[in-house]
Design a protein around this nucleic acid. Structure first.
Lengths: 209, 209
DNA sequence: AGGATGACGATACAAGTGCAATGTGACAAG
DNA sequence: CTTGTCACATTGCACTTGTATCGTCATCCT
């Protein structure tokens, strides 16, 4: 048997290159040869690790979702109560720093891609469903807010996704997006009197940039 | 001088074909020849009316935004007070029927496209800015809700955009999306006691499908 | 030591891409 | 009736795309 190589590591390397291409030049420019060039390898190697282009796409999507989940679990604020948990999750999805801007671009690109590839759409749907259930669960466990948990969960998730789009498009600033998210979080978690309430003392101003 | 034709009409015809292709097969499948085939014309004619592919893209984007705005102005509920105006606008952006599903697919595709084409991004940004200002204005004129008008406006707009993505992805149903939107509209327009409030008598259940 | 085996690299190929150049024909002004 | 002009059609070209095929070379097991 020949050289000992970890295939998963190789694939991840290539997936990273793909994500970089997708974020900077758009998904339309993602091709075998571009990814290979970005990764600094030959096109033949890419072909060796992904039998088809769609395989490569799906794997790259898995990489990002796994990465987001990993970052969430590594977040220290996870143990500060349900609202902090939800906030930590949602902020992960907001393009507040350069890394997340790239990931955000990738995410929206994949949402467009999913419209014509059922495989990708299913994968995306699973991820979303998990998050939604988790958020609704946390909201339910934290007494009642101004909305019923199910609607509050879809509302928050949709809000964040829309905010991400608007931030990436330059329609609003990242600060404004985080502030808007916080305002909606207060409503979802039962602080009914919102107007005039300065800010949450637990999370002074979040990590803006 | 030869045959008398309305160039704008021709271009709109071609733009419609492009939108159909983009909605059904994705933006990656939009090509000169595909659009021509969808429109039932030759590729040479497409080239005659659009010097470059990017011209065609931008024009198609203009067509959709103009169409959305026209539909909004034609909405009879526009004269039922600020909240009805905002609701009418936002529902236009939600994929509640087949036509709007297609438009929604187009919209998300263009958002992805805008990430790499500054021209498209600018055009998109202008449209969004207009809507945002209009919503904030209406909220301000309608007494105060639970959020400050600026945040409420970006919140509603982002919420709808996110909801559209989720509906298109099959993550939530159109009904659930409209219900969520209505719940958030109540908060933005100052009906603070939300939970337990059955529904708005003015707008019984909206036009679901 | 030797061969099997897997990790690559190179090349080929059909199909599709955007775009330019050139043709063709009709129709209206003179 | 001629003629210029505009609306389209055709063709061609250089290039990129995804995928299949074959070659090569290092490596590990026996």
């Amino acid at each position: 048997m020949p050289k000992q190589v970890d295939p998963h590591e190789r694939r991840t390397l290539l997936a990273d290159a793909l994500l970089r291409v997708a974020a900077t030049r758009g998904l339309m420019d993602v091709s075998l040869r571009h990814v290979a060039a970005e990764a600094g390898v030959t096109a033949g190697m890419v072909q060796h690790y992904f039998r088809t282009k769609d395989d490569m796409m799906v794997f790259a999507l898995d990489v990002v979702s796994a990465r987001v989940q990993a970052r969430l679990e590594a977040d220290p604020t996870t143990h500060d109560g349900p609202r902090a948990v939800v906030r930590a999750l949602l902020v992960q999805l907001l393009p507040v720093d350069d890394d997340r801007v790239l990931e955000g671009r990738v995410a929206i690109a994949f949402h467009a891609y999913a419209a014509s590839r059922p495989t990708v759409a299913t994968r995306l749907r699973e991820d979303t469903r998990g998050m939604r259930a988790m958020i609704a669960e946390q909201i339910r466990s934290a007494g009642r807010g101004a909305l019923e948990p199910e609607q509050a969960a879809t509302g928050l998730l949709s809000l964040v996704e829309g905010l991400a789009v608007h931030v990436l498009g330059g329609h609003v600033t990242a600060d404004h997006a985080v502030a808007t998210l916080d305002a909606h979080l207060r409503m979802a978690f039962g602080h009914v009197s919102v107007l005039g309430r300065p800010d949450d003392p637990e999370h002074p101003r979040a990590e803006h940039r």
